[in-house]
Design a protein around this nucleic acid. Sequence first.
DNA 1: AATATAATGGATAAAAATATCCACTATTCT
DNA 2: AGAATAGTGGATATTTTTATCCATTATATT
Lengths: 144, 144
Amino acid sequence: MFSKACEYGIRSSIFIAGQSKAGKKVSLIDVAEAIESPTAYTSKILQKLTRYNIINSDKGPTGGFSMDKKELAMVKLSSIVSAIDGDDVYNGCGLGLKQCNEFKPCPVHNHFKKIRNELKKMLETITIDSLTENYAKGLAFLKN
Amino acid sequence: MFSKACEYGIRSSIFIAGQSKAGKKVSLIDVAEAIESPTAYTSKILQKLTRYNIINSDKGPTGGFSMDKKELAMVKLSSIVSAIDGDDVYNGCGLGLKQCNEFKPCPVHNHFKKIRNELKKMLETITIDSLTENYAKGLAFLKN
DNA sequence: AATATAATGGATAAAAATATCCACTATTCT
DNA sequence: AGAATAGTGGATATTTTTATCCATTATATT
């Protein structure tokens, strides 16, 4: 459904958000450990999220990654997905046609549109903030 | 959502099914032309579908690919997807965790489960046969 | 100012997915 | 039997995705 990069991106964001709510910045190492991801690769992904202003990064000692507490509640799953994977999940054709729409649809266009719309609605509804809760309670996990 | 191989596989199947209903076998070249896909790569995919008994292939002159007319109506989209992409679409974790279930869920487990189940139901309901109709009428397309 | 810390950016490397090539087998037709 | 047709299987190439390495920049602390 999503690229590995995007999966790491979402998992990272949930972890960072949770720690930010507890007033803590986290280092790259912390993140990679928490979500069990390759460190250097995770770094690239966090850089991307930083450029999209989804997370903050600070250099130097006392530095690290964080999310603004006030804005945190506004960041939706969809922001992360489109930052990393683009909008293919929403608009791309299920059968890979470059252009596929009402007027020139692929044979599964309408069937997929329904699913896609539900996925879109879900991603645009769920906040990263809300996902930190079960993780914080130990009821949901970010690594195996 | 699906791999390119799977997209080609579905498009091929719709084309082959439609031609089979008209009593025609089609060659690899025909298929690749009809769905605008790389010929040799498409060959590999058709081989796979053949091994899974989703399509028939016959060698020699008068040979080609076809689908049994009686069974044709029974083949669901899900058969093709799981033949080519496996069952990751149905069972895989949205955040890429190796094991993710009710007892040890990722933070988006339940939100994704809903979408996944709808996708699964859709794929298990739609027959290839039904998809040939709009294509035959020129109301749906398999290439740009 | 010197040192240590932590993210950044660019260059590579490794792995997986996509795509191509070609010799081979099976089949049909003459 | 010989020639032509069409799928098969194995090896290889290309592209994309995933992953690593390391020198550099920015910041804080002593």
